[in-house]
Nucleic acid binder design. Structure first.
Length: 197
DNA sequence: ATGTCGATTTGCT
DNA sequence: GCAAATCGACATA
């Protein structure tokens, strides 16, 4: 299948960069595509959060905590880390950095651009509203990503990212502390959440 | 408009 | 046992 998108697809080298906080900002304005059950959906990334590994108390791999769940974080960048939150929500992350450095970027929000009917069906909604692809669990559900996709290649033909040339100036990025990590001590105040204005 | 609460897997104590 | 990188239903105002 040809989506005329090959040249725009983000390469493995993008995900293997090592400044995860910087990459989280670069992801704003990029497009997340999925192709499941014969349906393609896509949206422009508008909100991200960086999780920076063993030294980040908010990261699941803090202190190199290694479990079956967090194993994907320790792989080299370019795969998905998807985990179940509160027993029901699937949260999609992009793994970055090199092998054994467990960094990742949580995708918190998209602007839907393609396959909106499919997104509505997955979200059990009748019409587009603000909540269709806002919030990490809603976003993952809309694009059809669940924990079975943890460890998936992000440069393949099921889940991938594209650069459509959208330029996001630093002045159009709002940085705030991350959401829902009150347990993270000092690290809860780090400005690692980024929103495209 | 704002607040409380339940859903329910994973991992740490 | 309990808290968690959340969401939406329901209550009260």
């Amino acid at each position: 299948m040809d989506f005329k998108s090959t040249e725009e697809k983000l390469p493995l080298s993008f995900f293997r960069q090592q400044q995860t906080v910087e990459i989280a900002q670069q992801l704003l304005g990029k497009y997340l595509f999925t192709h499941f059950d014969g349906k393609i959906t896509a949206g422009m990334i508008t909100e991200t959060e960086a999780y920076t590994g063993a030294e980040d108390r908010a990261c699941h791999a803090y202190n190199n905590r290694r479990t079956k769940r967090t194993e994907a974080l320790f792989a080299a960048g370019g795969i998905a880390y998807v985990y179940l939150c509160y027993g029901i929500h699937h949260l999609f992350n992009i793994v970055t950095h090199k092998e054994n450095i467990p960094h990742a970027i949580l995708i918190r929000s998209l602007k839907p651009t393609y396959g909106i009917e499919t997104m509505l069906r997955r979200r059990k909604k009748n019409s587009v509203d603000k909540t269709l692809t806002r919030g990490p669990a809603n976003t993952a559900q809309a694009v059809g990503i669940d924990t079975s996709h943890s460890g998936s290649d992000l440069t393949g033909n099921r889940i991938w990212l594209e650069d459509h040339g959208v330029i996001v100036a630093k002045s159009d990025i709002l940085a705030t502390p991350r959401i829902g990590i009150d347990y993270a001590g000092e690290d809860k105040n780090l400005p690692y959440r980024f929103l495209k204005l």
